[in-house]
Amino acid sequence: MQIHWLEVTIAAIAIAVVLTRVLSKGAGWLSWRFWRGAMIASSITMTTILFVLSFFTVQEARPGSGRIPPWTVINHEIGLKWDAERQWQVPVVGEETGFFGQVYSPEEAEALVNKGKITFQARNCMECHTLLGNGAYYAPDLTRAWLDPWWETRIKPMVGAESREEAMMKWLMNPPQYPQGTRRMPNLNLTEEEARALVAFLKWMAAIDTNGFPPHYSLTYEQR
């Protein structure tokens, strides 16, 4: 369903005003009763609208719905392209290349991403990093971490990996050994299984349509 915010806004305000009039019928607009009515009206109206919008948002926020990629996206090439109409970058899913040299079935992919998400929470990653822009601002944003050019240009040769996923896994298993910048990431004692799952979670997240956040990803000074 197509929802336009301006219509919702006008409707919300109109309903709240009308409901206030109904609830506080006959009361002067400076009176106790009038404002009690206004309070109840605005609370009910806004809560109801939030619930309705949340219902529609949940439909669109399902994996495979278009905005959120299916779990099997980890088997594919992922990139970003400029969307001239929306004026921001959107993720594009390319051909199937496999992940750690194998193609995951939908169930396996979901289990792997799930393991990665639990590991992400269990290791409290959000207490330094941001993801989708939310977190602690001490370390880089991870929304598009999978697409970061550093994995290819810098980390891969450093840790001696064959592929990007392997480079990420090896780096994550002992970050203090390969410090980047002056802030170091502690060694969180990830097992190989956990590190692999974490990379899967990060790759899946990189394919979420975030309305263009972070803006102009990886269009760096060098490309200016």
Binding site: W5, T143, F213
Partner: peptide, 17 residues
């Protein structure tokens, strides 16, 4: 808070306003 987390675009206008 729903601008950039993968939720639909109508939140941009609603949240902003």
């Amino acid at each position: 808070h729903y601008f950039w987390i993968g939720t639909p675009e109508y939140w941009l206008g609603l949240g902003g306003f």
